[in-house]
Simulated scan of single mutants.
Amino acid sequence: MERRAAVLGSPIAHSLSPCLHRAAYDALGLRGWRYDAIECDERGLAGLLSGMGPEWAGLSLTMPLKRAVLPLLDTVSDLAVEVGGVNTVVFRDGGRHGENTDVHGIVQALTESGAAAPRAATILGGGATAGASLAALRELGLSSATLVARDPSRARETAEVAERLGMALTVQTFDKLDTALDVDLVVSTLPAGAADSYAEALTAVPAVFDVVYAPWPTPLARAVRAAGGTVVGGFAMLLHQAVRQVELYTGRGEVPVEIVRAAGEAEIIRRAARTD
């Protein structure tokens, strides 16, 4: 029987996940596996899930589905409950199990860059990735963090994540960003282009993790790198969370990360050349 997996979200055409997963399946010799990108918003999610048969092994979820999927699952991991978002659905034993591999992706991305021992950290933005970033910071040993958001009321869900994680969270607005930069790591969870105007201010921070992976490098990444700081890009997070998803879907624990990394980097270069 063919085994299937897919990434769901809206918009989804830009997703790099199919390239990463297909490279992993090929490297593992899983010839009967297929991975697609499926356009799906909150309204279509329940119907899509109900129509999936026994050939389905798992789903990768991106915006806007990470929180919307929670009531549609049979079980959810403790970490995904704490973070308040599921980016991975594993079909097993006739049920749907929710996981969060974003946290793993962030931890691995910071670890391989040498920025995995922050004394203090600030997160920019209050969406689902901010919650995963908080959990990653906890895993790296922090018990508190600062969150910078345009509107403090929009940070409510992230504040609830911090409470579930047992972390102290200080919420600040962007007009007071300078008061939140006495840290050695800033995690920007802002969408592409949204952090550009803050790039110069962030050059004083030793390490910056920008979750954007295309176009790359971002103005923020270029500014921090030119100032001698450490820059971690969103591709590393995407890579490691995808590798963990493949492990969960297939039950295989020897996914060749460097082969998958090379495939993803080649696809990013191909796309950039196509748009130039």
Rank of each mutant, 00 (worst) to 15 (best):
T218I: 10
R4P: 03
I38A: 01
V107L: 00
I268N: 05
T173E: 13
A262H: 03
T170S: 15
H104E: 15
A130R: 03
L72K: 05
L147E: 06
V187T: 11
A109I: 05
L45H: 01
M167Q: 09
Q108D: 04
I269W: 11
G44F: 08
T122A: 10
Q241P: 12
S144F: 00
N87E: 10
G228K: 09
S113Q: 12
L248A: 03
G95M: 10
R274F: 08
R244H: 09
A120F: 03
A109S: 10
A162L: 07
M52R: 11
P18V: 13
L30V: 09
R164D: 09
G58Q: 05
G131K: 00
R4E: 02
V86T: 14
A204Y: 01
H14M: 11
P118F: 01
A273L: 13
L49G: 08
V83Q: 03
M237K: 04
S10H: 15
E265K: 08
L79R: 14
P219H: 10
V211C: 02
V76F: 01
G105A: 09
V211Q: 09
T129A: 14
R222Q: 15
P217Y: 03
L239V: 02
S15V: 05
E82T: 12
S153M: 08
A109T: 06
V103C: 03
H97Y: 14
G47N: 06
G229H: 10
G125S: 12
A272V: 11
A27L: 02
P118D: 05
A149E: 13
L220T: 09
S113C: 10
V83Y: 01
G58M: 05
A159R: 13
L181P: 08
P217I: 14
L72P: 06
G58L: 02
S60A: 13
I269H: 13
L110M: 05
I38R: 12
L238T: 03
A57G: 07
A68T: 13
L181R: 07
I123Q: 00
D210W: 03
E42N: 04
E160M: 06
N100E: 02
M1R: 11
P11S: 07
A149S: 15
T275N: 08
I38V: 15
A135P: 09
T146A: 15
G53T: 14
L185F: 11
A168Q: 14
D74Y: 01
L177I: 14
H21I: 10
Y25T: 04
A195I: 04
E258G: 09
S143Q: 07
E200P: 01
R225Y: 04
A192W: 07
L238C: 08
L202F: 03
L61D: 07
A236S: 13
G47A: 11
D93N: 14
A6C: 06
A121N: 04
A116K: 02
I269T: 15
A207T: 08
V257P: 04
A192C: 07
L169C: 10
E82G: 13
W33I: 08
Q108S: 15
V161Q: 05
I259H: 11
D41K: 11
S10E: 13
E254W: 10
L147F: 08
P54N: 07
R138C: 00
D151P: 02
G9K: 02
G234S: 02
R34D: 11
Y198D: 12
A272C: 03
